[in-house]
């Protein structure tokens, strides 16, 4: 498969530039002040050329170039034999993480644009993964609960819609909901469940409904019914993607590929400069919120302006125990 690096950056380096860099490395080594990553390139392995991966990579390049001028960032869809030992490795997407771990389990890499679920599953059979830094793409359940509280300060009951994968977060989201003052009512759906029979009483008995991400097939099947049933019951839905908000959820909190790329650039910059990197999975600091004013109007919900909502959301997050 072809390499995807920017042609300008992938052009063979001139000999004088390589020579001068080697001279600099030697000088610093003699001075005893050599960071372990000096002279390293950044090698990015992406899962595929899907647009959202490419957006994340473009953001990473842009921000890393601003923070660390001169760094070379190579992008490929395949593992490369000529990666140097000092190169910093980055994977984008779960598939890329799995492939790199299978081939080079000893190498530390920054794993981007994966879900917390895929991190946990990979780590279960690959304990060494825990030594790697990772920036996941999904939002912590805490953020979804906080957004619900920020938008619906008087709501008392909260429907939590879970699927086969998101069901693993039951205890966490249940606990977060209780901390935020909600009485949670959980609706766990399996593939064999009747969605209308399960969701209809759930949304009718609660003040708001929160849906956690699951497999794409599950998400789309549930969205189809959850949004219509919740509208019928006049119960607002809080979800995890812009698509959900566009389709009829009251609001969503999510991370964009650009956010991922920007935060990853910060991690790499620190890694390049100090040789230090965080270990383990972390949620990104950045987030985006999308709201649906038409839904708010239809459900008689007062939607604060963007700034006010963000401030309220942050305040709820800070207040949560």
């Amino acid at each position: 498969m072809r390499a995807l690096g920017d042609q300008r950056e992938r052009r063979p380096r001139r000999r004088w530039a390589v020579l001068s860099r080697h001279l600099l490395v030697c000088a610093l080594a003699l001075a005893g002040d050599l960071p372990t990553t000096l002279g390293a390139d950044v090698q990015v392995l992406i899962a595929s050329e899907d647009s959202y991966y490419m957006q994340a990579v473009a953001s990473l390049r842009e921000h890393l170039a601003a923070l660390h001028p001169g760094v070379v960032t190579e992008v490929d869809t395949d593992l490369k034999a000529d990666w140097k030992a000092e190169d910093l490795l980055v994977t984008v997407g779960s598939d890329a993480m799995v492939r790199l771990r299978a081939e080079h389990p000893q190498r530390v890499a920054l794993h981007l644009f994966i879900t917390s679920d895929s991190w946990l599953q990979q780590r279960a059979g690959d304990p060494g993964l825990a030594e790697n830094p990772a920036l996941v793409f999904d939002q912590p359940p805490r953020h979804l609960v906080a957004l619900t509280r920020a938008l619906l300060p008087r709501a008392t009951t909260l429907a939590i819609v879970l699927g086969p994968i998101s069901g693993k977060h039951l205890n966490q989201v249940h606990g977060e909901a209780e901390k935020a003052g909600f009485e949670p009512l959980v609706g766990a759906l399996s593939a064999d469940a009747n969605p209308l029979a399960t969701l209809s009483p759930l949304v009718e008995a609660t003040d708001a409904a929160l849906v956690l991400p699951d497999s794409a097939d599950f998400n789309s099947a549930v969205a189809r019914w959850l949004l219509q049933l919740s509208f019928r019951a006049r119960t607002p839905v809080i979800a995890f993607s812009r698509a959900y908000a566009n389709a009829g959820a009251l609001a969503s909190v999510f991370v964009t590929p650009e956010d991922i790329g920007r935060e990853a650039a910060g991690i790499l910059d620190r890694w390049l400069k100090t040789g230090e990197y965080p270990r383990g999975m972390q949620y990104p600091d950045a987030y985006s919120i999308a709201t649906n004013p038409a839904v708010a109007t239809a459900l008689d919900i007062e939607l604060p302006d963007d700034e006010a909502l963000r401030a309220r959301f942050e305040a709820v997050l800070e207040a949560l125990p």
Partner: peptide, 19 residues
């Protein structure tokens, strides 16, 4: 929904959150 993730042994994947 761009459902690349179905059949993914890791379950929830990036495409699941997009659409």
């Amino acid at each position: 929904a761009t459902a690349q993730a179905a059949g993914d042994p890791l379950g929830l994947a990036e495409a699941d959150l997009l659409g």
